[in-house]
Simulated assay, not measured.
Amino acid sequence: MQESKQQIEQFVKNTVTAIGLLFKSELYGQTKILMYSAIDTMGLLDAPAGQEKASGETFKAWVRKYILANTKLPFSDVDLWAARCAVLHTFTTASDLSNGGKAKEIIFFVGQADSPMMKAFHAATLDVGKDTHVPAVFSDFLDAFLEGIERFMGDLIANCEKDSAYSRRLGKIIQTHMV
């Protein structure tokens, strides 16, 4: 079990470091790609022990449990799934779900939430979008993600201690090969 705990801690540390480097370099699109990929992975790691593939449902379940449960972010798990699909497939904000009216497009802004410019962007997004777009502060999403991954790490360690199937799946996902 100690090996699984170290693998989990190292994986989370590496993920957080990579996301931080991208964010600090103002590579926001790439930051989102890595965050969405990490949520996909965490969703699979949190899925029932026998599940072998990530899905929209595992992504959304992880988002509900670890990101949205303790925040006031303005979007839903479905909106975030649609944003993930949009960015990973076309590097835009539009997805099949948003185009079909089943999700709102998340428009992330970078800056101080209470600045006049940010308030103007927020209002314009709501006005122009007519309930099809939702403005969000990117750093709020990043903070919620980081808090969620920290809480998840303890839950994953506990799952690995209770059921070796979690540890086996973790080993497949992390694929740490030490030489």
Rank of each mutant, 00 (worst) to 15 (best):
D155R: 05
G171F: 01
F141T: 05
R168I: 14
H133T: 10
D79M: 01
K130C: 07
A86M: 12
L88W: 13
L68P: 04
F108L: 02
N159P: 07
V128A: 02
A82R: 10
A165R: 15
V63H: 04
R151L: 14
L126C: 10
S115V: 00
D155W: 12
D77I: 08
F152C: 08
A103Q: 04
F138S: 03
G111W: 02
L88I: 15
P135I: 00
R64G: 07
C85R: 13
G100Y: 09
P74T: 09
S76G: 06
L142T: 00
G111A: 00
I107D: 05
A144Q: 05
D163H: 04
E105T: 07
L80P: 03
M153A: 14
V137F: 02
M118T: 14
D96P: 11
D79L: 04
E161S: 06
R151Q: 15
E150P: 12
D140H: 07
S115N: 03
F91D: 13
M153H: 15
D163E: 04
D79N: 01
P74L: 09
F121Q: 12
K72Y: 14
F141P: 01
F145P: 07
G129F: 01
K130T: 07
C85S: 15
E150I: 11
G129Y: 03
D114A: 05
K104I: 00
A113Y: 04
Q112N: 12
F109V: 05
A123S: 11
A103T: 10
A136C: 08
K102L: 07
S76V: 09
F145W: 01
